[in-house]
Simulated scan of single mutants.
Amino acid sequence: MAYAASKSAVSMLAVHYAQAYPGLRVNVVDPGPTATDLNGHHGSQTVEEGAEAIVRAALLTSEGPTGTFSDAAGVSPW
């Protein structure tokens, strides 16, 4: 329960930062179930696959979206 609550808090913080600093791109990215040391390599995708959504968000230009939540499929509704 604490993990889900902390993720929700971070997401809301990102939205508030996006509103407070419209010149910046502040977004939340869910890389999905990625096989890492943290989960004993039980994720369904590689680190490279999980990084794709993160890199896509990192490469946004000043015209890109802000205050969004996205995953491998793209922007998701809150």
Rank of each mutant, 00 (worst) to 15 (best):
R25G: 06
L24G: 06
E52C: 01
A51N: 07
L60P: 00
G74S: 04
E48Q: 14
S8L: 13
I54A: 12
A5E: 12
V47S: 12
L38M: 15
G50C: 09
Q19V: 11
V28T: 09
H42V: 12
H42C: 10
G67S: 05
V75R: 04
P31V: 04
A5G: 11
F69Q: 10
N39A: 08
N27S: 03
S11N: 14
T46N: 10
G32V: 04
T61Y: 01
P22I: 06
L59D: 06
S62A: 15
T66K: 03
P65N: 02
T34N: 09
P65H: 04
A4H: 10
A5F: 09
P33Y: 10
L59T: 12
P31Q: 14
A4S: 15
G74Q: 07
I54K: 01
I54Y: 11
G43D: 11
V55W: 12
G32Q: 01
R56A: 13
E48R: 08
G32S: 03
R56N: 09
G32K: 03
Q19F: 11
A73P: 00
S8A: 15
V15C: 03
G64F: 07
N27M: 04
R56F: 08
A58P: 00
L38I: 12
P31I: 08
V75Q: 09
A18M: 02
A73L: 05
V29Y: 01
S8N: 13
K7V: 13
G64L: 09
S76M: 15
L38T: 08
N39W: 07
L38H: 07
P22M: 09
A51F: 12
R25F: 07
H42F: 11
W78N: 03
G64M: 09
A57Y: 05
Y21I: 08
S76E: 13
I54T: 11
P77I: 05
T68I: 10
L59C: 08
Y17M: 14
L60C: 01
E52L: 11
E52Y: 01
T68P: 00
E48Y: 04
P33N: 08
L59K: 07
S70I: 00
M12G: 03
A14Y: 06
G74H: 03
N27C: 04
A58N: 01
G43K: 02
P65F: 04
A4I: 14
L38P: 01
T36W: 10
L24S: 14
W78Y: 12
G64R: 05
A72I: 00
G64Y: 10
A51Y: 05
P31D: 12
A14V: 15
P65L: 02
S6I: 07
H16V: 07
P33L: 08
T68W: 00
P31H: 14
P77L: 13
R25Y: 08
H16A: 13
H41E: 13
A58W: 00
L59W: 00
S6E: 14
Q19K: 15
G40P: 07
T66V: 07
A35Q: 11
T34M: 13
A18P: 08
T61L: 06
G67F: 05
Q45I: 14
S76P: 00
T68L: 00
T68D: 00
R25A: 06
G43W: 06
M12I: 03
G40R: 10
G43L: 10
R56I: 02
A20Y: 09
Q19C: 11
E63N: 13
E63M: 09
P31M: 15
Y17T: 01
H41N: 14
A9D: 02
Q45E: 13
G43T: 05
V15N: 05
S62H: 15
S76I: 13
A57W: 06
S76D: 05
R25W: 11
